[in-house]
Design a protein around this nucleic acid. Structure first.
Lengths: 201, 201
DNA sequence: ACCTGAACACCGTTCAAGT
DNA sequence: ACCTGAACACCGTTCAAGT
């Protein structure tokens, strides 16, 4: 039974998160924005971390739903794969604070969070498997290949958010570029594996 | 002139960071451990964030030094590349709180931090360039290829620290595995590019 | 130049009490 | 069941003052 107050609190919290980052999300300011006393949240969440975990779970679920929608909508496996990777990037770059929160350190791993994480992971694995069958990605363990792809997207976004990518000022190596690079190399490797590898020095 | 107190404060802070994470690093506890009053830090750092930035800069510099040492020590370009990637992984997995701190959100990007980041980046680019010449990595923009490699290591470590890798319990897809996978695919792609690519459906 | 004690504003959390 | 006001312990930061 998601009470009205609970939803209002979550709305206020996510607004503060987007506007001022994690530090701006204080239980007192959240309560004030929601129009309740500063300790009303404790009737809906055991903890401040529980409130943050609820936000993270919702966001991770949203991402999973977007990925699933792409899988249904796009026609070709190649487009599904590329669009899925780009959805991850766009989401993270649009809501960096949510991205940092979702993949932050959780001393208490909420069950709800784990479920949402597994759900979006399953969709990704499905997309990768289809791409493998279409000859766009190398064959083999789909879980492991999915981990490879997710690690790259995740790392590219994280480095981009800190400014560790393209410090030269020139629009060098955006997360989207790196995703395309990886997909390109993997496609080449896929096609090469069936052919003999030449001798090396 | 790095005063003795300043060094003691940094030591205490990094100890607290490793022991209890970022939240455990309070200026008051740091001061107490250093044997000074709770506001003595303000004579050595303008801010709490400045103290954290100093730690991050030292760590990033340490990483860069380790990478440079590997480049000098290892004989073959292949070993240098692999060892460098593993050094990044080992450092991050051994000191997760330092890793999170170094690549955390910096509202104030200290000059010292930017210098340290560029230094370790330069070493990495150098290693990648050598590996390219040795035919271990695809030719082309070394900066961009370095970004690809760094993004993968970074993302793999980050996901591993949250537990988003190998949630099945089986020792599936460690960061080291993903690094090896990527290097393997890139080597195949390198050798394949000189040969004709077969028609696709 | 470096350090201290008191003080301020803010935060998470708890508790007794109200409806 | 849900909310409130007062209170507690803790934190970052500032300031006047000491050597």
């Amino acid at each position: 039974m998601p009470s009205q107050t609970r939803a209002t609190l979550l709305d206020a919290a996510i607004h503060l998160l987007d506007a001022g980052g994690l530090d701006a999300v204080t239980l007192r300011e959240v309560s004030h924005r929601a129009g309740v006393s500063h300790n009303a949240p404790y009737k809906h969440f055991t903890d401040k971390e529980a409130l943050l975990a609820a936000i993270a779970a919702v966001e991770l679920q949203r991402l999973g739903t977007s990925l699933a929608a792409i899988r249904e909508r796009e026609p070709s496996p190649a487009e599904v794969l590329r669009a899925a990777m780009r959805e991850y990037v766009t989401w993270a770059m649009t809501y960096p604070a949510r991205f940092k929160l979702v993949f932050g350190v959780w001393t208490t791993g909420t069950e709800e969070l784990a479920v949402a994480a597994n759900a979006s992971r399953t969709v990704l694995i499905d997309i990768v498997t289809i791409a493998q069958r279409a000859g766009l990605l190398p064959p083999g363990d789909s879980d492991r290949l999915t981990a490879l792809l997710q690690a790259l997207v995740h790392g590219a976004v994280d480095l981009a958010l800190i400014g560790h990518l393209s410090p030269g000022g020139k629009g060098h190596a955006s997360p989207e570029d790196l995703v395309d690079d990886l997909l390109g190399y993997l496609r080449i490797a896929t096609n090469a594996e069936s052919r003999p590898v030449p001798e090396r020095l």
